[in-house]
Amino acid sequence: MIEIVSAERCVACDKCVLACPTNVFDRGPGGVPVVARQEDCQTCYMCEAYCPVDALFVAPHTHPLPAGSPLREEPEVAGAGLLGSYRERIGWGRGRVPGARLAVGPDLDRAGPAPAAGRAPAGPARGARD
């Protein structure tokens, strides 16, 4: 769930308010978004991808983290290089190569360890699960 909005980094662009599919944010004082409805967060990481200044952090948990959890603390998350990490991985932002361009991955339709592949019909017909 969304855990961190960095007021220090935020440039009040409203992108996250618009992009969040479940309307979790409200525009707050000075334009810095507030997490108005954390319980509606579906942990989809989209706000992280759209924030142009890496001000947001979505923890991978589907429940709010307890007080004291390091993933709620901006200095620790920033220190671990995790602020804006989704945007970085999908290669969005100036000077980056789109992650889609690099997403060659293993040859997923044909390769794969024998036991899994052996059970499925051969060739591209198989269609791996996502």
Binding site: Y45, A59, P60, Y86, G99, A103, V104, G105
Partner: peptide, 13 residues
């Protein structure tokens, strides 16, 4: 590289 939406959440955790 091919599936950040699988790996990154695990790395965050």
């Amino acid at each position: 590289r091919s599936q950040p939406n699988y790996f990154l959440p695990m790395e965050k955790a």
